[in-house]
Every structure is written in structure tokens, then in C-alpha cells.
Design a protein around this nucleic acid. Sequence first.
DNA 1: ATCAACTGTGCAAACGTTTTAACATTTGGA
DNA 2: TCCAAATGTTAAAACGTTTGCACAGTTGAT
Lengths: 344, 344
Amino acid sequence: MAVTIKDVAKKAGVSPSTVSRVLSNHPRISAETSRKVKDIMDQLGYHPNIMAKSLVSKTTNSICIMLPKSAEELFSNFFFMELIRGIVTQASRLGYDVLISSGANEKEEIEGVSRLINGRRVDGVILLYSRKDDPVIDFLHENGHHFVLIGRSEQYPDILSVDNDNVQASYDATKHLISLGHERIGFVSGPPDLVVSKDRLKGYLDALHDSGLEMRPEWIVEGEFLQDSGYRAMSFFMNLPNRPTGIVLIDDVVSFGVLRGLHELKYKVPEDLCLVSFNNIPLSELSTPPLSSIDIGIYNLGYTASQVLIQSIQNNNDKSYQKRQIIPHRLMVRESSMYSISKK
Amino acid sequence: MAVTIKDVAKKAGVSPSTVSRVLSNHPRISAETSRKVKDIMDQLGYHPNIMAKSLVSKTTNSICIMLPKSAEELFSNFFFMELIRGIVTQASRLGYDVLISSGANEKEEIEGVSRLINGRRVDGVILLYSRKDDPVIDFLHENGHHFVLIGRSEQYPDILSVDNDNVQASYDATKHLISLGHERIGFVSGPPDLVVSKDRLKGYLDALHDSGLEMRPEWIVEGEFLQDSGYRAMSFFMNLPNRPTGIVLIDDVVSFGVLRGLHELKYKVPEDLCLVSFNNIPLSELSTPPLSSIDIGIYNLGYTASQVLIQSIQNNNDKSYQKRQIIPHRLMVRESSMYSISKK
DNA sequence: ATCAACTGTGCAAACGTTTTAACATTTGGA
DNA sequence: TCCAAATGTTAAAACGTTTGCACAGTTGAT
């Protein structure tokens, strides 16, 4: 059917081994033979069978991405697509293919990843999230598979990971409000089982503490990465007797919910409430008013994750490289936080 | 190293063939043998080697998605992620893995897809876009590969494709404005080399024609799927002597650009200009005012594309199924178009 | 009792590569 | 001139499956 290495060999009058060596640029092949074989390949339209190659070489030149079920959420769409773009771009540059796997729950996720990695279909895995106590991480770690985590693991501090300095980023966002004179600052967090929620909360608390500002439990609200959470947080905050004048939010989409609510209730942003959030998705400069946001370099996170994973696959033993990569963040100040509080 | 079918066979005291047959639920295997072999598999932690299986069965149980370089554009992020989710979900349900491929230009795209499909790494391809005269389609069609197009091909009308009835959808959007009394209606299109731009333009023109309304060339503007295009179209329209009172736009993100411009210039939506656009991305109900938009069922497009492709792979010969699937669309009327023009 | 059909299993070839070891030829230093 | 090293190529085994064919044993209708 398809043309194989044997067909090429026969037509070129050499052995299959020679053809194989031409393919891999083996140093001991003469220039003449190489030329001739390559011509025949073109002529016959030869394409190496990747499966056969993988079978014998025990390496697949592909990696897989675990897409969490939470990718269904609104927030995730931009974030994950951007991550995937970064991953695919760098992987492809390094000659790797990318598979996407997903599962409806943790059990399915493990089954999927196990099938792919134990079935020798992929050489490594990228995890796009970091839950606390994640059994998928347990599985990969215990069995010594190659993987990299986008985010941070509390269970295994020394695994390969690519992350932002979320504590610092949140510290920066909070300090930004403090520098504008805000003294009552709220925080809208994400699901408590995500490490990122914890880290950003810590940065917020640190900043308050360092500035000698009051921290009140009722100024901290938990939610999802959904605009509804923002809406609800807004209602809650605005009804407090001594309400915050500024808030830090875990994600831009949550901010959109807050904006919508404030608009409905005829509040003004930033005069009545200042907002700073995370992720700097493209629409955050399109909202009314435009949102101040911490750019976390999503594409760069994905790009670097590919890089790190493939490096680890290729230098199986070499432990010299950095285990944990930190992608720099950057506060984009826009109208939603441009309001100074004058002290009375 | 890893545990193979032979290890299982030896331990179970049967032949490798029997183990293989247990794996594929061959009818002639006795219940007792099957039980025993399966126990041993669990005990040994056996996982079939997918590569070896593919090599002999000449089928990979995977498909690939060609991610166009335009995925870098803003609009695309939500759209493509949603498509991918649909594709991956259905593929995984049918036991297929999904690979993502991309290329910086058409040449790279063809090389990538050729390597994967000729290298027998994937059984079929899903194309996420439909350009006019696309060489990737030429390549796939000429070589008789399995593929499905999300969109429509002008070159090959009878290839497998999943699409909306974009002409009708655009007709509906335009009719909606007409039914509110609008008589001067503009259209903001996308890049002219995309089939979808052409189809939506046609629906708009048909609707005007059927209602006996005037069509003016200056009311039709071409752009990209970017908010900047919307901004520019807005400036252009609002400076016309006899400007439109309503416009149909190729994409929600373009509408965001229009909204921003109108807001800056203190125009009111929908009073000064009514908007209806396409795709109904989640943020379109969050904008001020919320956008009227045609929901095209993005997830469903992806889901169906998987379904159709895999069906075609599995029934290689059977030509009985529908070549072209149309996903229903639905107009979501929101505030941006809720303004009737009274006849004078 | 006979034989056809069925049931359950094993043997061995095949899938398309890579790679080890071996071989033949050439080169060049002493 | 001789031998060691370098160069270029090949034969054959291996990777882990699937599957057509063969075979033995059982069943059941005549």
C-alpha cells in the first residue's frame, strides 16, 4: 500500500538499514548514497511510519495536555486557548506533537493519562491547573513519569513547574490600591481548592499587613471564575456598613460581573469602587471602564511549559536545570483603579 | 521493562493470541479464560502498547485538528476553544484521541498535516476554517484522505463539512432590523478570502432585496475579526451624510469595537444605532448594552465535526450519510437592537 | 455410529522501523 | 609492506501487537 523503507531500499539498490541511516543523517553514510536515496524517496513519495518508528525507538515525540473539566467555564476559554497556543507553538518548534486529553472527573482524567502514558503514546504530560491534593499529580509523580505543572503543587514542592509569583503579583495589585490612598480593601478569591487562590490571598494579606492596614474577614469573599461570583460579591460588599473603596479580584471575568452590577445600581467606577484583577484578557481593555489587571503572560506560561517538559524528556538524567520557572507579571493600570482617596 | 502481552500470557499459561483476543472481546474466548487473563492483567498492571497496535491494525484511533495561524487573533480565542472542546469531547466519547497541529503559513500547514496523515499517525483531519482556494483542502482531497471542514468549500461542494446556514442566519439578522422599521442598514464584513464573509454578506443583501430596501455600496465595510475594525467602521458610518440606523456585524468582537467608539462619541445604543452580530460569545451579554447576536452553536459545530469525521473513517466505503451537516442558529435579541424606527 | 458444525486455543507471519554486530574495503602511519 | 583504524554497508533481531489458519475437542442432528 503505502511506500515503505523497503521499497525505497529496493529501488535504490541498498539495504533498508542504509535507508534508515540516511533518514537519521548517520555520519557513516556517504554523500553519494545519501543523495541517491533521498532522490528516490522524493520520487516515490516516501513518508516514515511514525508508529513503527515509535515502537522500536520507545519514544513518541509527542506530549499531552490534560484539559480540566473546568475548561467549560467562561473564564477558561481565553486562558486555556492562549496556554494551548503557547504550548503547541513551542512543541512544534522542537519537533513534538501535542495531544489533548480530558476527562469528566478525576477518575477519568487518571484513566486517560494512564492510557496515553502507559500505552507509550506520549512521552510526557502538561497539567494546566493546580488543585490541592491532586490525584493526577500523585499518579504521575509516583510512577516517575515526565510532567510539568502550570501552577504550583503543595504536595510536591520540587516537581517541574511553570508559574507566576502569584503572591508577589497580588501584593503588587493591593499595594497599587494602597498607594492611591485606599485603606478599606476587599478581596474576591477563587475556588479554595486551587493553589492560585491561596497564593493570591496571601499576597493581599501581606500587603495589608505591611502597610498596617486593617484586615476584616467580611472583606474577603470566595467565588468561582464566573461573572456571577463577581455580581454576588458586589452586592455583598456594597451593603456592608463600612464598605471597601477598592477590591482585588482573582480574575477579569469576575470583575466583569462586578462592573455589570455596579452599573445596574448606578454606582460609578472608579469613584465608588476601584477594581484591580488578574489575567489581563484582551477584553479587559474593552470594558467600560477599562479594567486594571495583572498581566501574567499566559502564552509565555504555555510556551515555557513545553520547553521545560521536552527538555526534561530529552535529558532524562540531567537534573541541572531549573525545577521551577517563574514567568514575570506586570500590572496594567487602567481606568477602573484610577481614583485616589484623599485622607480626611 | 513495561509489561507486555507476552508477560501476561506466560503468567496466565495461555498464548499471546488468547490474551489479545481477550482484550478485543473475541466471541470464541471462554468466560473462564477471559476472567483469568483479565485478573492477571490487573495484577501485573498491563497497558496495551498503542503504537504496536496501530502498526499492525493500520489505524490509529486519533484525529488531528489544524489550528490556523489566525487563531492568534482576539476573536478566535473563544471561538476556537469552544470548537476544540466540542471536538475533544465527542472524539473521546468515541474512543479517539485528538492531536493539535498548526503552522505559520500554508506551506507549513501542509507539511504538518502530510507528516501526520502520511506518517500514519492520525486517521483524519478537521479543518477549523474555510478559506477560498485553500491548498490544504486540495492536498487532502486529491490524496483521498479523511477530513471534514468546519465551514464550506467553494472548490469542492461535496466534501464532508459541518457548517451553519450563514446566508439564512444573516438574512434573519437583517430581517430583524427591518421588522423594527429600519430602512438604512449597514453591514460590517470579515476578511474577503473567508467563505463565511461571503455567505453572510449574501444573506444581508437578499434580505434588503426581498424587502425592497435600498442597498448602498458605502454601507458595506470589510474588516478583520478585531475590535479595531469595528471602531473604524463606526467612524466611517457615523460620518456618512445619510447614515444607517442599524448594522449587522460579522462578529461580536467587532461589535465591541463599535460600542466603544459610540460610547466615546457620546452616541446612544440602540437609539442612535442598532447592532446585531454573530457568534454570541458569553461576553456579548455582559457588554453595555448587551449585544443582540446570532448564536451559531460553536460547541455543537465541533462536536458534530468529530462525529462526522469518525463515522467517515469507520465506514470507509459507505456513502449513505449526509455529506453536509447544518447546525441550527438562533437569534438572541438583546438591548443593542431593541429600538424601533417610526416611519415618517 | 457418523459427520458436520461449533467452540476454544495456539502457531507463526506480518506491520515498518531501528540498531547491534559483523563484514568488506579503503586509508595511512610506522 | 603491514596492520590498525576509519569508512561504508548489510543481515538479522527486536519492538508489541493482531489475525488467518490450523487443530483438537465437544455437541447434536441424523
